[in-house]
Amino acid sequence: MTQDYRFHHLAIIARNYAETVGWYCRHFGFSLAQEWTAPDMLPGARMCYLRKGTFFMEIIGDGEKAGHHQVAEDPRQEYQIPGYRHFALEVDDVDAAVKTLEGDGVPVFFPPATLDGVGVRAALVRDPDGNTVELIQWLRGRPGEAEA
């Protein structure tokens, strides 16, 4: 039998649980789907699933931390540091999305740019912990899909 792998969630370790949960709900329209604690595994930590359509994010915050993740200082460095670097949210208009986020005080890490080789317009913003979120707009259909 062939196993079917389906995306389940992305996890973020947050310095401040409430701030991070609120940030993703306020700026991107996520809603709180479930909250829990695991005191034996992570004393003092709170956890939740945030949901946006079929996309889930797990936020793990508060409790003890053993350091910090490496945050790129410059957008070019974003693609030179090994490990997961960002996740992307598709939007209809990257420029309008960035303008709205900037108006709400969200720092833009990389302003909207057209990447002709991929056929997208994209920008990068940062959450309260410096995690990068890419905003992406397809300019020519999605890869692997027939054009209408």
Rank of each mutant, 00 (worst) to 15 (best):
L50M: 08
P82I: 09
D74N: 15
Y24M: 10
F110G: 10
V125L: 03
P107H: 05
G29V: 06
Y24R: 07
Q3C: 14
G53Y: 04
L101Y: 11
A66R: 11
Y17L: 04
V120R: 05
F28H: 01
C25H: 01
V71F: 00
R26Y: 03
D40F: 09
S31N: 06
E19K: 12
N131V: 01
P75W: 14
E145Q: 09
V94A: 14
Q77M: 06
L135K: 05
L124H: 10
P111K: 03
W36Q: 02
L32Q: 08
L89M: 13
P82K: 08
L89T: 13
A122H: 03
F56M: 08
S31M: 10
E134G: 06
T114N: 13
A33E: 10
E35R: 07
E147L: 15
F87Q: 04
G83L: 04
K65S: 13
D4V: 15
P75L: 07
L32P: 06
G67C: 02
K99P: 01
W23S: 03
D92W: 05
V120M: 12
Q137S: 02
E145I: 04
A97Q: 05
L50T: 03
V94T: 14
M57L: 15
F110R: 15
K65D: 07
L139A: 08
L89R: 11
A38H: 01
H27A: 10
Y5F: 11
R46K: 11
G44T: 02
D116G: 05
E134A: 02
F87I: 02
Q80T: 13
L115V: 12
L101T: 02
H69C: 10
D127P: 03
Y84P: 03
V98Y: 03
L50R: 08
A123Y: 04
H27D: 06
K65N: 14
E64H: 08
Y84M: 08
V71R: 04
V106G: 09
T20L: 03
A33D: 15
G63N: 11
A66H: 13
Q70V: 15
P39N: 05
R121V: 06
A113W: 07
G29W: 00
D104T: 06
E90A: 11
F56G: 00
I60H: 14
A123V: 05
T132I: 15
D95P: 04
Q80W: 05
H8D: 14
Y17T: 03
G144V: 05
R6D: 11
P39A: 09
V94G: 04
G44D: 11
P107T: 01
F30M: 15
V108I: 14
L124Q: 09
T114S: 01
F56V: 04
W23H: 09
V106E: 05
A97W: 00
R142I: 02
F109V: 05
A18L: 10
P111L: 08
E58C: 13
H69I: 15
D116A: 15
P43L: 10
F110V: 11
C48Q: 02
A148T: 08
A96K: 12
W36V: 13
A11W: 00
A45D: 07
S31C: 04
T132C: 13
T37F: 06
I60L: 14
F56W: 09
A45T: 06
L89K: 08
V71D: 00
P39C: 13
R142K: 14
F110H: 12
I12P: 12
M41N: 11
T20Y: 00
A14I: 13
